[in-house]
Amino acid sequence: MMLEAPAAQSPLRAWLFLVVFSFRRQARVKQMVGIAIGLLMICLLLVITFTASAGWNRYEWRMNRSKPYTVEHVAGGMAHAAIDQSEYMDRIRQETKPLAVFSKWVVFLLFLGFLMPLFSLSFGTAAMGQEREGRSIVWLLTRPLPRSSIYLAKLLGLLPWSLALTVGGFGILCLAGGEPGQKAFVLYAPGIFAGTLAFSALFHLIGAMFQKPGIVALLYAFFFETMLSELPIPGTLKRLSINYYTRCLLYSSAETEGVPTETSSLFVPVSPTTAWVVLIGTTVAITGIGMWLFGRMEAKEEM
């Protein structure tokens, strides 16, 4: 059997196949997908347990703990109204609302502080990093496809996974959280989506550029980002972190429902429009830079 007359080779067709091929290759990284789902399940179990047992309304618990009306015993019943209308009680009422409790601990702490960066990091760095580590990247680089298009195809192949696990995982957690969870999903899903896009683009770039991308990304996500976006430090240095803009989006959504956030003088949030522009712009810019760099980069043999 011989190969006959040359058939038409279409770079576009090859590129579209590469997108699908990259998506399918991500599924083969079973260990990583398994761990991601495992971590999500642990969080899900905690949320379900809490929803089913104590519930998200923490007013009674907070009142029992801080006992603001104790003064009444001394000052008499007249003090009740004063205490009831005080700023302190307003804050307690706001902070103990089911949506506020769910937002603070599940969304801002657990999801934004851990699951979202970790999932984006894992899939983002693995797309190109595993091809390099496994030295199978040679099969892609010797195909008749522009290098920059290979970079873009790999990113498009990983995004569904990254988004499915972050936005989808977030949806599952919210669903398990009952009514406040469902409200939280509507409020925060767009912000989570934008943050995931930006993180994935950044970690994909790290995956393509560094020999140990996982470690560099880990250093960035849990050292640099944590330091800049979460710690209450003044100044505008935190504006270099993706997490900051994601938080700005989430906080602004939260405020529409009266959920208290960290928008203190130290956090200094930007407007939601600015945050959207920065996150989408960052995604596009990082992808563009990655395509440009990868298009000029020689394949290095991984050791």
Partner: peptide
Amino acid sequence: RTVPLIMVWTAAFVMSRLVQRWLVDGLG
């Protein structure tokens, strides 16, 4: 592999810290 190792390692050191804060400080 590096990435799965990182995932489990961060779960042991970062996630566990966040979860304990949530359970004790948040939920009492």
